[in-house]
């Protein structure tokens, strides 16, 4: 029992050091931390969801939350409570989003006979010439993510499916795309 506790403490101590290094911009340490966290996060998500099919998506959401919250960790504090609070909140949000999505979706038999529109047939937002030019200047992966989610107004899951990537990866691309768009549009202002 006490060996297990010591082992857990040692592991969390190492994660704390890796996170502190990551906060200082050490990318290899940060990557190692995220990789080490995968197994316990997967086990945690599995215990909460009980559905192996959605564990990957939820773990990716947890990783994104950890990334967005990384500035809120202080190395003098224990790493475990910080990590598991973020994981629990991200899993709760994922479960909530999934139940909302399920409530909105139609049963498959009600969709029979309806052809799925192509991306081009779906409603699109009109873009100003400046925004169009800024969008064209983005790297292809980021442009595709922004276009699918905000020009064609697809959900994250639909956009990820069309782009052939995970929802988490699509969110990262879209987020980087928005940042680049903001910078590009701010530069254009007189």
């Amino acid at each position: 029992m006490s060996e297990e506790r010591d082992e857990r403490r040692a592991r969390e101590g190492r994660w704390s050091e890796l996170m502190a290094a990551g906060q200082d911009g050490d990318a290899p340490a940060y990557e190692q931390l995220l990789r080490e966290l995968l197994i316990p996060l997967r086990a945690f998500a599995m215990s909460r969801l009980g559905d192996p099919a959605s564990v990957d998506d939820v773990v990716q959401n947890v990783l994104l939350s950890i990334h967005r919250a990384r500035h809120s960790y202080r190395p003098e504090r224990p790493f475990g409570p910080w990590l598991w609070t973020i994981a629990r909140n991200a899993v709760t949000d994922s479960l909530r989003a999934r139940s909302t999505r399920l409530r909105r979706e139609l049963p498959i038999d009600e969709l029979e006979g309806i052809d799925e529109p192509s991306v081009e047939q779906q409603p699109q937002l009109a873009l100003s010439p400046a925004l169009r030019a800024a969008l064209d200047g983005l790297p292809p992966a980021q442009r595709q993510a922004v276009e699918l989610m905000h020009v064609h107004q697809l959900s994250v899951a639909e956009a990820a499916e069309r782009a052939g990537v995970s929802p988490g990866a699509l969110k990262v691309r879209a987020h980087r795309g928005y940042k680049a768009l903001r910078v590009a549009l701010a530069d254009e202002k007189p």
Binding site: E31, L34, R35, V59, L64, G168, A169, V172, R173
Partner: peptide, 11 residues
């Protein structure tokens, strides 16, 4: 996809 997400977050 998880592997690529981790690489993307660390890059």
């Amino acid at each position: 996809s998880t592997d690529s997400l981790i690489r993307e977050l660390s890059r």
